[in-house]
Design a protein around this nucleic acid. Structure first.
Lengths: 197, 197, 197, 197
DNA sequence: GATGAATGAGCTTTCATTCAT
DNA sequence: AATGAATGAAAGCTCATTCAT
């Protein structure tokens, strides 16, 4: 294996480990030594891959957003109704929240919560472009096809991001009486009703 | 003025000042000396009013939630349609986000983001009961009157909380091309469509 | 009751309460507000009785030493053998350690341990003169009567103070397999054997 | 020199320096910055060697007790009478109190006086086992050989520990009219008389 | 590339003491 | 005499980052 490849692999393993720790313990409660020690790596060496803790956090949100965007891109390629696509997207999101909670948790607990960390390097929403772009594609397609009402994109995007994120937050707070999957149908319906033409 | 009153006033002024600083700079970037010095008060004396930084943060969220709940309680008392009430609530929320942004920001940036801080003393959502309760009253009333579809409360609550919070977050990120008030009509309509019978 | 009497009573109640708290929690772990609050008294007022925490600690050791000395003075007045007097003294000490442990504990944990506190005002052993004096009387009497060997007073005094204090310390550390009273006979005998003519 | 060796050396130099400062100024009057600055070392780095001030204090008492135990172990190996061994032990203790007073002082002023510090990690007397064990060996041997009277071990141990410690305490208080060595013969004799068969 | 000892500013919290009332 | 809010210096400890090896 080439050196460049090895480096890329290690880079990714750092991202994965840091993602895990940040999402569980929060950004400020996770230290660089914590991350290095879980990776059995020296702190000094970790700095060879990411030049600061903030930069590392930024790379993680890009990585996560990309991964989520990827899944939605698949949905966008399906030949089904907008209503079904909404159901799919909600399903993907909640399933991920259940099976890979660290990604969604990272979004809520690290990205959304520590703006200082992301203010230099992730202005606007460039670091979550992967996710936004796919929602935008979905929305534009569905408006074009006449299935969804035409309205300001952010009114629609806020609905997706806020509603889904909010539900996962409530789950995390242990206030939902049901499992998160229980809400998929209700919430898909609500979103569809909100946006339909 | 009585001593007890004076103390209560000072207590409230600490809450106001800390709310401001926390919401602008985040919980971890705001230090107790920062708060004390803005109040022209000694650090030690501040601890006579709140026994720790965490406790202070918890008292602020209760205070904020109560203030928001109070406004919604007024709406609940109005003799208007559910559709109009939704419009009112969205209006209140966005107006507050514009005029007293620190309260909404606090919710998003401090409460939602630093669970460790609130885990002892604000389990579940007891510290935001003031807000939740009023949304619950609104929802129950409107379902009873046949205006809104009967569904799990949390599906509806997540919509309010997540959607409204999400929009304010986007505003804070400076990604919204329009002023927050611009979205009041769109979002009210979306929420009503999502929930109507 | 005269004002002076009232003040003396309050002064003593402060000493008693502080003695209790210092002996249980140690000097540095006990705060002036702790003492005041247990007395239902303001800190400011407490300073009307004792001008500093150190002064208070010094007054307590005098009080304690006097109380212990008083009991030994009674023994010195008895018409019994030196051997019996030693037994009495050991008995008094261990009984006090059991029934009023705060006095002995104060000696060990506060006086003996925080020399800085006592260096200004209790130089030498002036603050424990009450206790020392009586041991000295006992020793001189018993040497005069030919029952105990004549030797340097401090060799004898160190034996009493160190041995008895050491045993109580061991008891406090929970390393003694038996109750403290179990050792009265052994230790009296050892002391008598050590000192007898 | 190997890194591990260097680290061990530094660890020991921290112990020595802290021992000195604690024994002279007391535990609470000695700060971590004090220790670090005397070592020309940063505060943070000191925490790489000892995870808290309490832990440091505990390691010191183990170190000290071991050092004292070592010396008594040599005496236990000698082929001399119990009476002579007692004289040796007293000699060792008083000589150490004179030449390396910090060790004995630490015992009296830090270990004996700040139980809170040692309650987690040094329960019972595990941290002074090095010293106790050797006294126990001496006592058992001498009872076996018929030189000392058989009695509860703690009655004998308290005599050694309390008497010797008490004398050094008196010395520290400057109440002894003579040099500490002056008392070696008297005290050895008293101890032997107390314990002999 | 890899190591981890070292740095030191900065944090939250405590508490003896004062003093206006 | 009595109150207790107020002071502020100082404590123990943390941790992102650097750098000699």
């Amino acid at each position: 294996m080439k050196i460049a490849e090895k480096k890329a692999l290690k880079r990714e393993s750092i991202i994965q480990t840091a993602l895990q720790l940040f999402s569980v313990n929060g950004f400020h409660r996770t230290t660089i030594p914590d991350i290095a020690s879980k990776l059995q790596m020296s702190v000094g060496n970790l700095y060879n891959y990411f030049s600061s803790k903030d930069i590392l956090a930024q790379e993680i949100i890009k990585y996560t957003s990309e991964a989520l965007g990827e899944k939605i891109r698949v949905v966008n390629g399906l030949d089904v109704s907008a209503e079904q696509k909404i159901h799919e997207i909600v399903d993907i999101y909640f399933t991920m929240a259940k099976e890979k909670p660290e990604m969604i948790e990272y979004f809520l607990r690290v990205y959304l919560s520590n703006r200082e960390v992301f203010s230099d390097g992730c202005q606007g929403m460039v670091c979550v472009a992967g996710f936004i772009t796919e929602i935008m594609v979905f929305f534009d397609d569905s408006v074009s096809s006449g299935e969804l009402r035409n309205q300001d994109f952010f009114s629609a995007f806020g609905l997706f991001m806020g509603y889904l994120g909010g539900m996962v937050f409530l789950k995390g707070e242990d206030v939902l009486p049901q499992d998160i999957e229980f809400y998929i149908d209700d919430i898909s319906r609500n979103i569809y009703n909100a946006l339909k033409a």
